[in-house]
Write a protein that binds this DNA or RNA. Structure first.
Lengths: 293, 293
DNA sequence: TCATTTCTCTGACCATAGTCAGAGATTATC
DNA sequence: GATAATCTCTGACTATGGTCAGAGAAATGA
């Protein structure tokens, strides 16, 4: 499929889908609440938070959000109370009546999804949901932002912690002291650390350090389990390779553990070839290398 | 997958997709035209038409559309001239400048689709477009409306004509005189005719007639080529079976031609079994029957 | 030929969905 | 302990995206 056919497919889907979903959105009308208030109700209901928090999650203007909250408050659907931890902040939560209303909204939304599924035969339903799940993963992956982050930043530390947890679970990796090394090595001028973030959550990461003149090493490659198969690992790897090339490296190395089969397959697809052990890392069993052009 | 998991998948996709596509929609802002005017430009540019026509296609209020047209006219982007065939109607077309602007909009839209595809690896791009194409077909199929239509109505005749054309192409079917029979048989009280319409176009049809007391016959089953594999045929068939049951029939029959392999597979999936020839239709080679409970 | 219908248009009106500046309370920083 | 920064709020203002009733021109039907 050519690039034009690919964009044509995306555009065709967009037109059909937004038109049809837009029509279904009207089902929320006539519930006595304007649409942004409904979105806000959904947000507070599924995860209460401070005003600041809600503003960030929904991308709303502070004045506007405040007004929406007053509206919901006067309808007796939410209460807004000062946050004990920082009394400048205020936390919004649903009242009992608000929870009832939230359940109604959930039911309405469920019904709305069903109008898309119900007319189909069981076989088509399976195909549709499989296609949407696949598209969902890939669309999320495509809109992830890769950003260079200092390993000391909370975002980066959260990602690395999840990496450590998984390595520990899978082959008993002991991470004591590792994060201090990271902070020193995986940052400029001789290294880099990349975090992929989606909806405010870290979903993948990867680091680059220099182990000898002209030779870089890939470290801390991690992709959240629910995000695998969307090419995120490859993207982080490509990003790090570009940075390595910019640092003047001619070779990239990495070590890994034999239990990490998906990662090894990814490295091989990306052009990495097996080499002999090049360090004394007791947790590493497999070693790879790739020349940079 | 349970029904709840299916709706959850749809809702999850909806949230992620509308959020991300909504953000991309803003790319049309700052072009000096409000969004509905842009939609109107797209519509006129891809297929000029009368005001009435545009109103139906875009689902806009007549006063509102009129105002949008004045806006585009005063910007020198479209001209609106009386329709020679009926001078109450007025036809909107793009001016030279309008066509330039349309090209810009197209480019912008193309770019927007690319922001979704570009970050992905080639493998993921192929997967995403395949998933979207599949979802597109099924979403369109799910939102098709099946309506009983008099075979004499232009919509029904258009559908039957496409059926005839395809039968002629595939096994030399001669349709002379057939439409007159249809008009008499495929309508109440002893028959029915169903047309499936999407975006104003007939995309599938099917008819039911009574050939003996308690015995109905399925006729004119047709699904547009680009719509096959979305379960539309099965839906039309189920609809006709319900109507046959309502008429008190205990058996449904149908004849078909051996070259129509997809149709035959569909009949078999729907529980129809081969029987001996029951009529002298020279174009029929295969005969099926199914009891109705 | 006259009444009715169809079609587009204009004027008047309205709800929704915001933006922006700055006040007032609280906390962090020097 | 003073100053700066952060957080939420209110008031004033605006753009967007419409709806609705009815006028006027053209076509249709009896």
């Amino acid at each position: 499929m050519t690039a034009e056919q690919q964009t044509a497919t995306v555009r065709r889907f967009n037109r059909a889908y937004t038109q049809r979903i837009g029509a279904l959105e009207d089902s929320f009308l006539g519930m006595g609440l304007p649409l942004p208030a409904i979105r806000l109700m959904f947000e507070i209901g599924s995860r209460p938070g401070t005003v600041r928090d809600l503003r960030a999650r929904l991308g709303l203007d502070s004045g506007y959000l405040s007004r929406l909250l007053r509206r919901l408050e006067s309808d007796g659907l939410v209460t807004v109370a000062p946050d004990p931890a920082d009394r400048r902040r205020r936390v919004a939560t649903l009242t009992g009546r608000g929870r009832e209303r939230w359940n109604e909204l959930e039911a309405r939304s469920e019904e709305r999804a069903r109008t898309l599924i119900d007319p189909l035969t069981p076989r088509q339903r399976t195909r549709l949901t499989a296609a949407l799940a696949e598209a969902d993963l890939l669309v999320r992956a495509a809109t992830v932002t890769l950003a260079e982050t200092d390993p000391a930043e909370p975002e980066a530390r959260a990602a690395v912690q999840r990496y450590f947890d998984e390595m520990h679970r899978r082959f008993g990796f002991d991470s004591s002291g590792e994060d201090i090394k990271d902070a020193a090595m995986l940052c400029p001028p001789d290294g880099a650390f990349i975090v992929a973030v989606s909806d405010g959550e870290p979903v993948a990461c990867g680091g680059l350090q220099t182990i000898a003149p002209g030779i870089g090493e890939i470290k801390r490659m991690w992709v959240d389990e629910t995000w695998r198969g969307a090419g995120l690992g490859s993207r982080v790897l490509r990003d790090l390779e570009k940075r390595a090339a910019a640092l003047g490296h001619h070779t990239l190395r990495l070590d890994t553990n034999e239990t990490l089969a998906e990662a090894i397959a990814m490295y091989e697809r990306a052009g990495y070839q097996r080499v002999a052990r090049y360090n004394d890392n007791p947790f590493a069993t497999d070693f790879f290398e790739r020349p940079l052009f």
